[in-house]
Amino acid sequence: METIYERERRFIKDFNEIGDSFDQYAYLIELSCLLPPLPEELKTDENVVSGCQSTVWLDIRTDGGIFRFSSDSNTLIIKGVLYILQELFNGQAVSEVATANLSFLRETAIMDTFESSRQKGLGYVIARLQAAAGAAKQ
């Protein structure tokens, strides 16, 4: 299985090969279509990531030391980013997820349009995923 790092490098390369920044966002929107809908009963207050300008729900499972999460958002671009995170983390060992040093938000232009509160919001999403993985590791 590809490591988180290998998956991320592949994604960054694919994304940056799309030269036009509008088409990059269109690609994120396409990815959002691949995100399976989160069942309504999982859209609970506890699953909402606070601090996000867009509403983001995360349902995290760490059964058997394997990390899996489902997610949803009310904005398609954020859903696209959530899809990428699911692709990177799902099926990986919790220890790998907890210690991964993600760089795709820095190495692509995804964040360029996001105002600082939304940039922080995505940071909270990643922090919450990794904190859950870290807790499961212990």
Binding site: F22, Y25, I29, I77, F114
Partner: peptide, 14 residues
């Protein structure tokens, strides 16, 4: 069926 943030972000790309 599009969030206003999606629309404004994509317009910004243009």
């Amino acid at each position: 069926c599009l969030h206003c943030f999606d629309v404004a972000s994509m317009l910004d790309r243009l």
